[in-house]
Every structure is written in structure tokens, then in C-alpha cells.
Simulated scan of single mutants.
Amino acid sequence: MAAVATGVTSWAIHSYSAAAPPDSKAPSSADQNLQDADMLLQAGIAQQENHDLERADRTYRRVLELDPQNKFAWYNLGVMAHEADRVADARADYDKALKIDPAFESALFNEALLLEPSDPDQAGELLKRVIAGNPKAATAHLHLGRIWAQKKRDKDAADEFRRAVASDPTLRSEVPEEFR
């Protein structure tokens, strides 16, 4: 999951960088800070991928000093906290990313996974938001199906499992036997 999340983040970072307006002759201090933050963010991703989590944490926090609205830095801090089972920190970091971008699919999904065992209702709401933004989000359908199955909403669960497998047939083995 972390590799996928980091990969999605890397893609999103690349898209974010590519969408930046062309530089003028002399970038302003704010523009320079954003460019520096983007370069640091990419370094943090590399550090995270290489399991140098202490350096990645410091790098992401430096990014946030330069650009407090950097949803990718908040998200990656959340991923690292999530992997370390620091639930409160992970949730706080995902929430900060979602305050910046309420439709940030990766943060919505990861927070839903974090909440699924303890607060399935809230997790379900987050998964619905993921699906609203991306109807083919197969793993979101799968997890929402599990929540509905747990709540004995078998018809809703069957519908979600069907959507999950339609979007990604490899998930069939993840569907509970009674819903296959």
C-alpha cells in the first residue's frame, strides 16, 4: 500500500510541477520558495522510498516551512505515521492534506483505511468521496463492500464487490466467499 501511495504521490508531484507556469526572468521570493519546496519534496519522496524515514520526515517538514499548503508533504507525513502505527499523527496529517484539497483521493483513501477498524461509518463516508471522484476506484469499492457486509447490508455489499471486480478482476480473491 505504501509503495502505491508513494507512486501516486510521485505522479501527482510530477503533474503539479509540470503545471507550474513558466519562469519569468527573475522569480519572486514566493515563487523561489515553491520551487525549492518542490525540489525538497522530490528529495523527501526518494528518502522515503529508500526507507530513510528520519531524513524524509525532516525534509517534508522543511517543505512545509517553505510551503505550508503543500498537500503532498502533509500526505507523505501521514503515510509514514500510518506505517509506524501512529494513528493520531497519521489522521492529523491526512486531515491537513484534505483541508488543502478536500478531493485528494490518496489522502481520502488512506484515512478511510486508517478509520475502517475503529469507525467504519466515517471510513465509509470517506470511501464514498473517493468513489464520487473516481467511480472506477476498485479498492475503494472493495473496502466499502466490506463495511456494508459487516453492517449486514448484503445488497449494498454485493453491489460494491461487483463494482470492485468489474474495475479490477484481480480483486475477486479479496471478495468474501459468500459474495463471489
Rank of each mutant, 00 (worst) to 15 (best):
L142E: 08
S15E: 13
A30E: 12
E125C: 02
I45C: 11
D156P: 05
A30Y: 05
A43L: 10
L64Y: 06
V130Q: 04
P135T: 04
K151D: 07
H141A: 10
W11M: 14
K25V: 01
L144F: 05
R86L: 06
D121T: 09
D67T: 01
Q150E: 07
E116R: 05
T59K: 07
R163Q: 15
A3L: 07
K155M: 12
I13Y: 12
E160I: 00
P135M: 03
R153F: 08
K136C: 01
P68G: 13
Q69K: 10
K151I: 03
D154G: 09
F104Q: 07
Q69M: 10
A164Q: 04
P117L: 02
G78E: 02
G7F: 11
G44I: 07
V87M: 13
K151P: 00
A37P: 00
E178P: 05
D38H: 12
Q35M: 15
P68W: 02
A90V: 04
V8H: 13
T170W: 06
I131H: 03
A158P: 01
A97V: 00
D36F: 05
I13T: 11
A132V: 03
L66H: 09
V63H: 06
D159K: 09
S167T: 02
I100A: 14
D31T: 07
S118N: 08
L64E: 09
A97K: 10
D36G: 04
V63C: 13
S15A: 15
E54H: 10
W148C: 05
N134R: 12
Y75A: 12
E174G: 05
K136N: 07
F72K: 01
R61C: 07
Q42S: 15
K25F: 08
K71G: 11
M39A: 15
I147D: 02
S10R: 03
V87K: 14
R163K: 14
V8E: 15
E125M: 05
I100F: 13
A37L: 08
D95F: 03
M1F: 06
E160F: 03
P176G: 14
F161E: 05
H82G: 10
A26M: 07
Y94E: 13
T9V: 14
P169Q: 05
F161Q: 04
H143Q: 11
D52A: 14
H51L: 12
Y16C: 12
F109L: 14
L77D: 04
H14I: 00
A90Q: 09
A43D: 09
S15R: 12
P117W: 01
Q69D: 15
D159I: 01
G44S: 10
V63I: 08
L66T: 06
A140N: 01
S106W: 01
S173P: 00
Q32E: 13
A20M: 15
K152V: 00
G78M: 05
F109D: 04
K25D: 11
S29C: 04
D95G: 09
W148Y: 14
L127F: 10
E116A: 13
A20R: 11
N33M: 10
A26D: 06
D38R: 14
L114F: 00
Y16A: 15
D95R: 03
T170C: 07
Y94R: 07
L64C: 09
Q42M: 11
R91V: 06
D67E: 10
S118A: 11
A132K: 08
